[in-house]
Each structure stands twice: as C-alpha cells, then as structure tokens.
Nucleic acid binder design. Structure first.
Length: 405
RNA sequence: GGGCAGGUACCGAAGCGGUCAAACGGGGCAGACUGUAAAUCUGCUGGGGUAUCCCUUCGGAGGUUCGAAUCCUUCCCUGCCCA
C-alpha cells in the first residue's frame, strides 16, 4: 500500500529546505508501513487572511505529496489562534478577529486549499475545538512547560524586544497554542514555511511534555513576492492569488525580477527532476532566455490552476498587449447610464471606476497614460461623446469599452 | 505608581508658530527605453475647481493666537528607566 521508505523520504525531501530529525521520520515511516497505518501530517493555516496565494501553495503541494503517499493530511484551521494573531514576520501585532469571522474565513481557505489538496486523506479541524475549552488552569499548566528565555529565542520576539517594539504578553502564547494543536491531533509530522521553524519546534517540546512522541518537521521555502524583496503576502500586495484569473496570474509572474525565476519555477510548480534539471541548466548556460523562462514558468503556473488552454490564451494576450501594444482579445463593455452623452473625459473615467478621483485621472492624462480609441489623450479637459462605443485605455493594462445606455 | 522619550500622509522618517498638502527614503502609478507588468532613467503621488481659490489631513478632545503639525490643558496609545 505504501511506497518503500527510501522512496518516500526522497519525495518528502524534494524541494524542502529542512527535514528533521531525519532519522525519526525514517523510523516513523518504517513503522507506518509495517503497521499499515498512515502518518498524521499536520499543516496549520491562518484564517485571518483566507486568500491563498502561490506562496501558500508551496507547503500545500508538499502536503499533497504526503497524501499521495497514502498519509493523512490534517489541516488545522486556526480559528482560535487567529484571535491572538501570530506576530510572525511582521513587527506589528495583527488585529485579532472574532471566532465567527475566522470560521467564515476558514471555509474560504478550505475551498481554495482543495484546489491543491486531495479531498481524500484529508481531515479538517478547527483548533477552537480544543483551545476554546481550556480553562485558566490548563493554560497555566501549558505555560509552565516553557520558559521566557526559550520563548525569547524566537527571532522576531528578540528583535522586537531589542528594538523597543511592543510585544503583548498574549503573543507569547501563540507558539504554545499552536503546539497544543500538535498535542490534540497527535501529529507525526508538521509542515510549515521556514518562518515557522520556531513554532514547530515548540510543538515538539510540548508534545514531549504531554507524553507524546514529538513530531517530525518539514520546512518549505518561503516564496518571495513579486517585488523580489519581501515574502509574498496579501497585505504587501506582492502576491499571485490562486484565484487570480489567468491573465493576471500570467502578467504578475512576468513581472518578477529575473533572479526569482528559478525559485518560482521550482517551488510554485514542483516540476519533476528531469524538467527542473533542464530548466536550471538552460538558465545557467544562457540557452534559455530569461523572458522565455518566465513565460514557461508563468504558463506552467497558470495551467496548474486554470488548465493548459487558458494558460496559452493568457500568453497570447500578454504578447498582444505588452509586446505589440495591441488591444486584448476580450475587453469588457460598460454601459453608463448618464443624462448627457457628451461629458468631460475625466468624469467618465471616475464614473467607470477606472480612476479613483478626478485628480488622479487628470494626472494620468497629463502623463500620457490615457488613450481613447487608440490615440493618446493630451487634453485634460477633453469631452467625450459616448453615444457610440469608445475604447478607453487607462494606464498600462486597463482596457474598457464604454457606451451610454 | 514615579521619571524620561515618543505618536506626522500607504510605510519609514524630517519639520517644532506663518513661506506646510508638509523635506527625504521606500512603496505605488505613469512616461521613455527594452527582452517583460525585469532592469535603468524621468516625472507624478490628499480631494474639489480649466483661474496665485476652497475643503480635509500631522494620536483624540478642548484652548491660546490675526495665524498651530508646531505653544498650553486634558485624555488615549507606545517604548525605556525606576518601583
């Protein structure tokens, strides 16, 4: 039923930054084969931001691999922990949410996650199930298992402490709460991004403290955002959402700096060894042009979420709009219900929602970023007759047909 | 509880009575260029108005003043030191 240990280890280790303790994991897999019992593989998710992007997909794909090996994926929706708000990475305390909010977000998360995960071998648990039932004595018992010095080892805590940034006391409880999840579901393995290393290790310690066998840890790389500087995140706006439409997905990936191409190719698509070797060598030798490499990457990613056909279309569109400066195949038509068919262009731009304000619209016109029917607008106070259909290009990539009616 | 230092636009950070819609950097947007929504260079970056005009913004609320981001009072928030 299960593939042999070595084969499993190879698959698990591929694309992972760190897998430890390796020998423990090896034994666990051996045991699971012998007893014909799947491993319980935990992945925590944060429902405070339910929109998944391809940064999340890295770890989700890894979890999927575990599923494909016959193991049980246990997705923990951190509805309770989201109320605390993991400060990880950011030096700011996150706003906490109510339980209901996190529940709703959790559903959205799940919906998106199953674009990558299999629905079989999948168990979904909300951590309020156990965390919400702990009383103060339970919390004290849990907190007594860890020391201030230990918790301060966490990079971002010590950094914030040194910089005089605020750390609320409850933030210290976050890693402990997350560790309780591992206790509650008796995780054999926990997956996470490298930024989760500390939390996952606390999980091991706390499991031991509660008389359980400590989980093994698989750390996946963190995908940088489109800017190539910060980690991909929604709040930074440097992300590719897995629900993005093909065009956006394609375009966004084309905008990554060249240095990021390989990383995206590998971690967002999990190519097989043959493919990745070819790709890597092509890049290194220069036989594969960076633009071409990017196109391949973009196509592959789009295809994962939308299929080959859409990927091809997105590619065509991209070439059209950006290389040939033409109009894309499909442009939406907006009918404006207005009394006057001739109006200042600026007003039209605001009415369509293309521009957030007249000032902004004027600015863009002044800078030569607005086209009507293919010709650049140079008069800020131009009037536009919309009794017939007009094509507006606003900025680099917003196209819209507009007509009164 | 006491002492000190702070809270400025999307973020970081200057400004410390008028010349402040607020320097500078980042981010964002646009233009040029290109291999692309890469890189680089240039410009723009509160709102309304076809006018050196008005409105909103410097933690909140009051006050002083012809005039406040700048001074005073009070409240809230944060860090450091002491207890």
């Amino acid at each position: 039923m299960f593939p042999p240990v070595n084969e499993q280890m190879d698959i698990i280790k591929r694309f992972a930054v760190e897998v430890f303790p390796e020998d423990e994991l090896f034994e666990k897999i051996e045991k699971s084969i012998k007893q014909n019992k799947p491993l319980r593989v935990k992945l925590g998710c944060d429902p405070s931001k339910p929109d998944l992007h391809i940064g999340h997909s890295v770890v989700l794909r890894k979890l999927r691999q575990f599923q494909d090996l016959g193991h049980k994926a246990i997705l923990i929706v951190g509805d309770f922990t989201a109320m605390i708000g993991d400060p990880s990475g950011k030096n700011k305390t996150r706003p906490s949410l109510t339980l209901e909010e996190t529940r709703i977000n959790g559903r959205t998360y799940l919906e998106q996650a199953t674009k990558i995960l299999s629905k079989e071998n999948l168990e979904v648990r909300f951590n309020s199930e156990w965390l919400n039932n702990m009383n103060f004595a339970d919390v004290i018992k849990l907190a007594s298992k860890y020391t201030v010095a230990q918790i301060l080892e966490r990079d971002d805590f010590s950094l914030r402490y040194r910089q005089g940034m605020p750390i609320s006391l409850h933030e210290f409880l976050y890693p402990l709460a997350q560790a309780m999840d591992s206790v509650a579901i008796e995780a054999d393995v926990e997956l996470g991004g490298t930024d989760q290393k500390f939390n996952l290790i606390v999980g091991r310690e706390i499991q031991k403290a509660y008389g359980l066998e400590p989980q093994s840890i698989v750390l996946m790389p963190i995908l940088e955002g489109l800017d190539g500087k910060e980690k991909m995140s929604k709040s930074l706006g440097n992300y590719v959402a897995i629900t993005d439409d093909p065009k956006d997905m394609f375009g966004k990936i084309m905008s990554i700096p060249d240095e990021l191409i390989l990383k995206y190719y590998l971690y967002a698509t999990f190519p097989n060894p043959l493919e990745s070797e070819k790709f890597e060598e092509g890049l290194k030798s220069g036989l594969l042009h960076p633009k071409e490499a990017k196109i391949q990457t973009a196509k592959k990613i789009v295809a994962l979420y939308h299929g080959e056909e859409e990927a091809e279309k997105a590619h065509q569109d991209f070439e059209k709009v950006f290389s040939k400066k033409e109009v894309p195949d499909e442009v939406e038509t907006l009918f404006l219900n207005v009394a006057n068919k001739v109006q200042p262009l600026v007003d039209v731009l605001v009415a369509t929602g293309l521009a957030p304000s007249k000032k902004e619209a004027k600015r863009l016109i002044e800078q030569g970023g607005v086209y009507v029917d293919g010709s650049r607008v140079c008069d800020v106070y131009m009037n536009l007759d919309i009794s017939t259909r007009r094509l507006i290009k606003y900025g680099k990539r917003k196209f819209l047909y507009i007509q009164s009616g």
